[in-house]
Amino acid sequence: MVYAGIDIGSTAAKGVLLNEAKTEILARKLMPSGWNSRQTAEELHTWLLSLGHSREDLRIIATGYGRVSVPYADKTLTEITCHGKGAAFLGGGDLTVIDIGGQDTKVIVLTGGRVTDFVMNDKCSAGTGKFLEVMANRMGLGLDEFFAMAETGREVKISSMCTVFAESEIVSLMGLGTPREDIACGAVGSVVSKVSALVNRKSPSGKYYLTGGFCEAGFLVRKLGEVLGAEVITSPDGRFAGAIGAALLG
């Protein structure tokens, strides 16, 4: 028996296969969630079956926003439990997980490998991946370019929390001739401060692990650490944390 985790988020869909002992990642798959999560789930199914294991030999757990669209899953679990488990696998069992997702951000407190508390952002995209995506788009930049630019900028304050208002705010900043670098830096700063406010609603353990699509956005990770006053660890597998956790719980 091998264990698969399928994590269909609002922006990206992730698949992971773990070995029988659940100690090693055998395969990973990352794709955009697209507009039809059922079709995305089907593609991940095809990928799983191409890895050389029969269906009977696979135990599949689905998580994430689109977990209801995975008809072939043996079980579904919420992304909170899965991200917690996945982060414990990657970073250890006693830490505070920060997951910046496409449409929501969550803070999960782990104690001895178990989720003991969590908090999610309100029904608003401030402090989520969506916020940065919209800002980068508005500046005509891909996310990688956007972070590279932000790193060389001097932070201008973006005061609107709301994505729509912030978007018009940066349009007027651009109109005033503010360098794009500074605006990008300001947008990252906005997300970081919103995320750290969420962290501070819980009693954090002082050790942080970042999961989600920004795990390789070094600038954001550093900034977050500065504001929290502690090191934020992560790894390229951080984006697979939900899928890894799902597979572990299979």
């Binding site: 679990l77 909170i80 439990t81 508390d117 999610m120």
Partner: peptide
């Protein structure tokens, strides 16, 4: 385990509430 839900009588946060409740039950 303790969880606080801030809400009103609208249906706009139905999805988020469901996820939070699901996670709380798992916890």
């Amino acid at each position: 385990p303790y969880m606080r839900l801030d809400t009103d009588f609208s249906q706009s946060d139905k999805g988020q509430i469901e996820t939070r409740l699901g996670a709380f039950i798992e916890m």
